[in-house]
Amino acid sequence: MNIFRLAGDMTHLLSILVLLLKIYATKSCSGVSRKTQELYAIVFLARYLDLFTDFISVYNTFMKIVFIASSLAIVWCIRVHPMVKRSYDKDLDTFRHYLLVAASFLLALFLHEKFTFLEIFWAFSIYLEAVAILPQLVLLQRSGNVDNLTGQYVFFLGAYRGLYILNWIYRYLTEPRFTRWIACVSGVVQTALYADFFYYYFISWKNNSKLKLPA
């Protein structure tokens, strides 16, 4: 565990906390894509099937359970909580996310490290995570104005991806046998998706103005 990896995990955790805080404090999920949240729940459930077969560390097990539980809690809030549910605008959140699920699964059937149940679901979760933010980014772009907490949520998620790339560079330089092409290539693709958002996030931060994405 290096400092980039730890910082990445912490910003990931922070992003989820920010989102939960936003939903809890405002009793609203306006600006939040339910589809992205459902994709993340699928990502964690598919990837952490190894909770039952492999033990890495207490830290790993703990974080896996936190990610699964928090992603399910967010989906639950948006789908079931009476007040939060009311604030969900399904007309803005129209991305056909099942296409992402189907495409990721198809890719995992062809591109995986081993043809086993766990490995295929692992590869699937990696591909799906890479594109899971798309419904959220499209929703933000369509609604134009982004409230502070939602903006910070996406910012921390993007920071987490950026830090993971630094972590891989560090591991590549310090661990002689570190080769993890599926995760690294997907990770770079995923981070690139945030480039546009980051550009506007920094502009609004520099000008001390509200974050606005061009239509």
Partner: peptide
């Protein structure tokens, strides 16, 4: 260890 067996990242 092989390439695949160390899924130590989250």
């Amino acid at each position: 260890s092989s390439i695949t067996d160390a899924k130590d990242e989250l």
